[in-house]
Amino acid sequence: MSTDKATEPRPAVKGADRRQVLGGAVVLSALAGIPLYAWNREREGRDGAGATDSEKLLLARLSDLVVPATGTPGAVAVGVPAFVELALLHGLEDTASEDSGKVKMGGDRGGLPLLEEVKKGLNRHADAPFLTLSPERQHIALESYDAEAFAPEQKDHPWKKIKGLILTGYYTSEVGASRELQYELVPGRYDPDLPLPVNNRSWSSDWTAVDFG
């Protein structure tokens, strides 16, 4: 894992790549085909609430940059953006908080405004509109922004919350929990001391690890 990016020179990335904007639109339309009951319910149930198209596009890009397709599907393919949108609307991960942990009850948009902060931060790190960049340049800009967010001196940072929700969305999806990781609802026994396989995969159903890990 790279954790020292904050000390490296900021990548000088300029100029929009029109093909990537179009590519983003394709991603967005692909999202509409995913059975995202929660997202759709939210859209139907609220007047003007929910993410804007550009927020959805940003969420989709960020989700796949954090958890790309590898041997298993990536975040967009398993519907993470819709979960994050729902989660933001309902203030999960303290995203709709005013002060310390107090969830705001009034705002229709819940924690969605955090996405605007994240976008500004990314644009700053990219020296260009983040969504217009090529995937490679987006990766570099996000890596730099991520390093800033996780620097030891940082406490609250909007990206930590969004990234946390992306991770939750992925590792609690069926693919993330049971194909990328392992899931066993009924272990049936307790083995207190086993050799750890070299290519080990952790248990998404180890609830103690999920809580305290």
């Binding site: 790309p68 946390g164 991770l167 590792y171 998404s204 305290f212």
Partner: peptide
């Protein structure tokens, strides 16, 4: 206990290497 995927929430990183690390 051994930590699981939620430890990733405290870790810097994105992309394939990060995903690979998080599965362990």
């Amino acid at each position: 206990l051994q930590s699981g995927w939620t430890a990733a929430k405290r870790s810097a990183g994105i992309g394939k290497a990060y995903k690979e690390q998080n599965r362990k």
